[in-house]
Write a protein that binds this DNA or RNA. Structure first.
Lengths: 211, 211
DNA sequence: TAGATTGTTAATCGATTAACAATC
DNA sequence: TAGATTGTTAATCGATTAACAATC
């Protein structure tokens, strides 16, 4: 342990999550110790960068030796906030929403899907995995009752903004937005919105391929 | 038209894709003209940045007036390479792969899913949407026959690296990797790999919420 | 012309990298 | 001790922003 820890750059946060993913793999395969150089190679990065990122954890490796995989995993999880269970709901049970609801990777990282909501009367009451689809009207009550932390938003573009307001009103502090449109938190809200767009990822790839 | 166009920063490419998404929305609602200020507000950015990004297109707005929505859309698509159809295959028809195969957003942006592959004998021959799941052994032949441009990789972590080699061998120049592990292109390959991890997006959101 | 908004420069800010002293 | 690798500094590189001349 070295530093009382500063503000962590966004780019660092993203890389830390990638380090974590690899470290968990390494741990599964029985590796106990690792060096910045090996992490860097595995991810195609510079080893200086890896050490600098890790130094944000305020934890420490051993000079001449490296890092304990177990320690690094714990430190990164502690910084990311994923050393606990996060309670998540899904809003919008269309094609993509249904898919996301079954995605194993969320559960594995401690994101627990507790509810699913839609406006379509045809869908309400039907099962989705272990859950039953609820009316969007229930969202506020449900979110408060279960102290929901995060909402995964997978509704059509034209519904997205009004659903954001509903999620905010329900007191949920974070939204992962898959709706293909920019949405804004309302003025006084402290809700964090993180954008994900799978088509945009393909476009970025297409650009790289053309160059 | 101003500049012969330089290298475009990666951050700019990503934002251009987001501008495109908004502009397409605006066009659908009948808007013909737009200003950097309005784009910036809609996306929560600085208007200087929007103008600078757009200036990478080598296209031009009209001082005192703004940009033609139609022109901007065309220019951005031309830079991203999405002014044409991209031929895509899916490798790995698990939970996530199945979901991705039905995602409308890909088709809407000109990404055409032509094939789906898996190694599981149980799945081969079964339908997925309009397609029939093929054996991974068929990948090379199929990719060359149809001149496939991009592969969406959605296999388990332990299979990912060997499938990457197979995709490279099939001559496919771009991979969108959903497998939760870092993979590397083989040494002499020019294949571009773009990482996407939905659990990591949730982790980034969790971090922002905690702060 | 007067008002508006672009395109672009120069200044600022932040992130990456090389290098090396500290130290296991 | 000798060899290895971290933690951290200083230098470089790239991205963002403010400001304003150009011009519609």
């Amino acid at each position: 342990m070295t530093k009382p820890r500063q503000q962590i750059p966004k780019a660092t946060v993203t890389r830390l999550a990638f380090y974590l993913r690899e470290l968990q793999q390494m741990q599964r395969s029985g590796l106990a110790n690792i060096q910045s150089r090996a992490i860097a190679e595995r991810l195609g990065l510079n080893d200086s960068q890896v050490r600098r990122d890790i130094s944000c954890l305020g934890t420490v490796g051993q000079r001449g030796v490296g890092y304990q995989v177990e320690d690094l995993i714990q430190s990164i999880q502690s910084i990311l906030g994923t050393d606990r269970i996060w309670k998540v709901i899904l809003v919008g049970v269309g094609n993509l929403g249904r898919a996301l609801s079954g995605y194993r990777g969320f559960q594995e990282q401690g994101f627990d899907l507790l509810g699913a909501f839609d406006t379509d009367a045809e869908k309400i009451g039907k099962p989705i995995g272990q859950l039953k689809i609820q009316s969007l009207d229930q969202l506020g009550t449900f979110a408060k009752l279960h102290a929901i932390d995060l909402a995964i938003l997978a509704v059509p573009a034209d519904a997205a903004q009004s659903v954001v307001f509903a999620i905010e009103a329900a007191g949920i502090p974070g939204i992962l937005n898959f709706a293909p449109i920019a949405v804004q938190p309302s003025v006084h809200s402290k809700t964090i919105i993180q954008e994900v767009d799978l088509a945009i990822e393909l476009q970025r790839l297409a650009f790289s391929v053309v160059r």
